[in-house]
Design a protein around this nucleic acid. Structure first.
Length: 569
RNA sequence: CGGGGCGUAGCGCAGCCUGGUAGCGCGCGUGCUUUGGGAGCACGAAGUCGUGGGUUCGAAUCCCACCGCCCCGACCA
């Protein structure tokens, strides 16, 4: 591909809207262009990278016996109504009517369609297990897109579905995908770690998220270097401290002006935060009011809280007037005197004597509150988030917290979708059973961005060989005044094309500085420089982008490389 | 949706406070020179100042409304 003909332009300055290195570089190097919030075009270079990532995924899916198909982007809403998701999912599911006033949706994933296909096509246990996948555009009207390609609204995802006779079969399938994912991420140059994850609203019996560590990550991971424990903070558990036993003292009001936060309260009273109780107020999707109590030195974990009370439709923070209406006071809140509220208390609070809690009066707290002596919890559960340095539940070593980006997930779905769709099979004993499903997703664009996050320097992108849009970037210097340079460059370019290994060829009439700078920005793994100087030195200057190692190789060697793809050691 | 910021040429920005004929750098076009690290000179093209309304003799500038984008929080590949 001649750079003079490539539909691309490089930018000298960082676009103002970009924060993450991958976003800046993909924009500057002409790989992507933004159309709207969370909506991007992949330009020819970006499209080639995406296709290469796709091909790696395809190969590894095929290798575990997964069959590629393609399912529609637009679904009749009935499909989603029948599974119940039409009603469970909020505005991120785009709904519209077609010309016949029929309700339609833009697909976010394809569990429903798979279940319907299974219903129609699978009758017997002999047809199971089966693995299916496709690459398809998803649209999710996210509340907020961010980070360039990291969180977008429209994106191509590889989603795969395992279909098994029973849980044991699902476990077996799940292991295959787990292994395939490890290979995929390794091949495209990502250090992904699998962490245990929340199973979310669809239920299911287990899930892992494959995460790459990144400071811009949206998830927090709880990691233990000592034993390898790795979980999403949403579900991670730690060994909580054991409070010293104290006799329960009588409650006592204490005036605490302006102590609306735990920090202010602890400072004002001159006691550790661990001697206080924190109240957080939520409303569930179906309208229940929830007050969650944790010790002041911990934070409420909304995922755990959601699961503890099986909150339908999730949780949202409560409004001040909603809190007041239940007899409580924001900033000075506690279940003391609360009404019409589901009281959820962290188990550690139950073990911690004589805590300071809100008096539900502005400017006042109550000392020596003991549960359940002073108020009765509706639910006692473990509802706090793991903290940096807390003791690993498995080995007791201090855990660390890291930010991560989810590059893929695997999920034991179970039978919810197949039961809803009536997708059953007849077993060898003549019994009818629902098919057991798993789902396995990888977002293409996000992975491309994560590869850039992991492989770049101050000059630009450094593509791993496996996903580079072109294997090499051929730079001709001084071609205008030295016919030998032009001829050599043209010949190498043509030769690569003939061998089916197209390379990027900078044939532009630009200064050497511009060409080198662009070559480094665009990030092909090999940079081949042809110039009067290199020819005089006996050939082509070959630079490995990743290391900057540079050597002059005989032309024949470069020709061999363009044919085979690998330089002799 | 709450909070913060921003919308002026392809990109980065100034101008706005204190209204008076829209500017800078890069990029782009043409010509000449230059050619191993973002070249020089000359000439040139390019902007509904996000949109609509209002105030005013006059609005990029002041006021109102709306739209869009980015960042921080509630969601997920």
């Amino acid at each position: 591909m001649r750079l003079s003909e490539l539909f691309f332009t490089s930018l000298r300055d960082d676009p103002a809207e970009a924060e993450m290195p991958s976003h800046k570089l993909l924009l500057r190097a002409g790989y992507v262009r933004q159309l709207g919030s969370g909506i991007y075009s992949l330009l020819p270079l970006g499209f080639r990278v995406s296709k290469r990532v796709e091909q790696v995924i395809r190969e590894e899916m095929n290798a575990i016996g997964c069959q590629e198909l393609e399912m529609p982007v637009v679904h009749p809403a009935e499909v989603w109504k029948d599974s119940g998701r039409y009603f469970k999912i909020g505005p991120e599911l785009v709904r519209f009517k077609d010309r016949g006033e029929r309700d339609m949706v833009l697909a976010m994933t394809h569990e429903e369609v798979i279940a319907l296909l299974l219903r129609d096509l699978v009758q017997s246990y002999r047809q199971l297990p089966v693995q299916l996948y496709h690459f398809q555009t998803k649209f999710r009207d996210e509340p907020r897109s961010r980070g360039g390609l990291i969180r977008v609204r429209e994106f191509v995802m590889k989603d795969a579905y395992s279909c098994d006779r029973d849980e044991a079969g699902l476990d077996e399938s799940y292991r295959k995908y787990y292994g395939a994912y490890e290979k995929i991420f390794k091949r495209i140059g990502l250090d992904a770690i699998a962490v245990g994850a929340d199973v979310g609203i669809m239920g299911g019996s287990g899930a892992h998220e494959f995460m790459v560590l990144n400071e811009f990550g949206e998830d927090t991971l709880v990691l233990c270097d000592a034993c390898g424990y790795a979980e999403n903070q949403q579900i991670a558990e730690v060994a909580k401290p054991s409070p010293e036993a104290e006799p329960a003292l009588p409650m006592e009001d204490v005036e605490t002006p302006d102590a609306t936060t735990i920090d202010a309260l602890a400072t004002f009273l001159g006691m550790p935060r661990s001697k206080t109780a924190k109240a957080a107020f939520f409303v569930t999707g179906d309208g229940r009011f929830v007050v969650a109590i944790v010790r002041g030195d911990f934070d409420v974990n909304e995922t755990k809280l959601t699961n503890a009370i099986k909150a339908v439709g999730g949780l949202r923070p409560a409004q001040v007037d909603e809190i007041k209406a239940r007899g409580m006071e924001a900033g000075y809140g506690s279940p003391l005197g609360a009404r019409d509220a589901v009281v959820v208390v962290d188990e550690l609070v139950l073990r911690s004597p004589n805590l300071v809690a809100g008096a539900n009066r502005v400017g006042w707290h109550v000392k020596n509150v003991n549960v359940p002596r002073d108020y009765l919890p509706d639910v006692v559960a473990e509802i706090t988030s793991a903290r940096e340095g807390d003791a690993c539940v498995r080995c007791g070593s201090p855990v660390k917290l890291r930010k991560g980006i989810e590059v893929g997930n695997i999920f034991k779905l179970g039978t919810d979708f197949t039961v809803a769709a009536g997708a059953t099979y007849l077993d060898d004993d003549g019994e009818r059973h629902p098919i057991v499903m798993g789902s396995y997703g990888i977002g293409l664009g996000r992975n491309v961005a994560c590869v850039v996050e992991a492989h770049h320097d101050e000059k630009g992108i450094i593509w791993p060989d496996e996903v580079a849009p072109y294997a090499a970037h051929l730079v001709a210097i001084g071609a205008a005044r030295d016919p030998a340079v032009r001829e050599t460059a043209e010949r190498l370019h043509a030769l690569a094309g003939d061998a089916g290994r197209e390379i990027l060829y900078d044939d532009r009439d630009e200064s050497p500085g511009v060409k080198f700078t662009d070559a480094e920005l665009l990030g092909m793994p090999w940079i081949l420089t042809v110039s009067p100087r290199s020819l005089a030195a006996g050939g082509i200057e070959v630079t490995r982008r990743e290391t900057g190692e540079r050597s002059t190789r005989p032309i024949a060697e470069v020709e061999a490389f363009l044919g085979s793809g690998a330089f002799p050691a």
